[in-house]
Amino acid sequence: PVSSTLYGPSFLAGGVGGSVTHQCFYSTTPANRHDRKYWCKVGRGGVCSTIISTTGYTSKDHQGRVALQDIPQNGTFIVTMAKLAKSDAGIYRCGIGSTNRDLFAYLNLTVSADAGTVGTTQLVQGELHGSIMVLCSPGDTQSSQKRFWCKVVRASCLLVADSHGYVAKSHQGRVSITPQGSSGASKILMNDLKKEDSGLYRCGTGRLNSWGSPQLVALQVTTASTLPRRPKFLTGTVGGSLPIKCHHDPKRSYEKKYLCRWKAGSCSLLLDLDGFVDESYKGRAQIGSSDQEPGTYTVVLSQLREEDAGWYWCGARSRHTEHTAPLKLLIQKG
């Protein structure tokens, strides 16, 4: 039972005498930002006893070994528990509200003699209709293994995309997963963001259900977006030509602006503004006139063929981020 406006990892592991840090993510509505945040443990009869809250309360048994930090501008609060004992294992809730029955997410904490390594959760924020980039660390697996990106739903993880060409129906044309060299790392790009994309994700290598030490990513889609909703479908005619207008932030400087062809979870570079044109598009893909409004560039595709139909991405990459936007090209016979 993870609420659409409050979520966090469902499992946490720590070692006896060690510490754990748990992050809870919430949508940044005014009410959520200012309301009481709490961390409680579920006991017999389902009653959740408060361990710590932002009102200044800390339970007697946890004095000096628990802390709660609320970061309302990021929509997250962080609970750290130290000097762990076996008796700390159990079901917890992190939540928001005046009682412990309001908005919350469950967490199962296990405490063992040897907990191994526990990954941290990365917070990624994107705007409605916008895009995000996530870099997944290689972990400790071989680079030849399949990379995956999945969304955590209760105790399972629903596959969104993998590096062998699988893409979930709900993400066709709007997610790519690209291995980065031979290190085992990968880059995830996701665009045309929707409210329901908010939530917890895992990325990793190998089999989806082998937990290992996958990277956890909390995606927050902010709905107070300034991004306009642009048309996603363009129609051309066999033998004709078609201008594709791409948009980017005019205030940012980008190392590369490009158009790529999306198929089965990867996007092959078709053309960039540095002069590269893919062999199969030479003579029929070019950059439009340079006299364009700030924050845009136009790619003109000519001598259109039926096989040109499909998904394309406009992209703009800087050192720290990459913005992408999808377009679907429909081709009619002349």
Rank of each mutant, 00 (worst) to 15 (best):
residue 223 T to L: 14
residue 205 T to W: 11
residue 220 Q to H: 10
residue 192 D to W: 13
residue 196 E to V: 08
residue 205 T to N: 10
residue 211 W to T: 15
residue 248 H to Q: 09
residue 237 T to N: 14
residue 227 L to Q: 08
residue 219 L to K: 03
residue 214 P to A: 12
residue 206 G to C: 02
residue 247 H to Q: 10
residue 248 H to V: 09
residue 255 E to A: 08
residue 205 T to L: 15
residue 212 G to Y: 14
residue 224 A to K: 14
residue 200 L to M: 14
residue 213 S to D: 15
residue 225 S to M: 03
residue 255 E to D: 11
residue 234 L to F: 05
residue 206 G to W: 13
residue 226 T to A: 11
residue 252 R to Q: 15
residue 254 Y to N: 14
residue 240 G to N: 10
residue 250 P to S: 14
residue 202 R to A: 07
residue 231 P to T: 12
residue 212 G to E: 13
residue 213 S to G: 00
residue 241 S to G: 14
residue 201 Y to C: 05
residue 227 L to G: 00
residue 225 S to C: 01
residue 209 N to Q: 12
residue 232 K to N: 10
residue 209 N to W: 02
residue 237 T to G: 06
residue 215 Q to V: 03
residue 215 Q to S: 10
residue 206 G to P: 00
residue 238 V to C: 00
residue 189 L to V: 07
residue 238 V to A: 05
residue 246 C to Y: 12
residue 208 L to R: 09
residue 203 C to Y: 02
residue 189 L to T: 15
residue 213 S to K: 15
residue 228 P to G: 02
residue 221 V to H: 03
residue 197 D to C: 03
residue 253 S to M: 04
residue 250 P to Q: 14
residue 246 C to W: 15
residue 223 T to R: 07
residue 229 R to H: 11
residue 188 I to P: 04
residue 200 L to A: 05
residue 250 P to I: 09
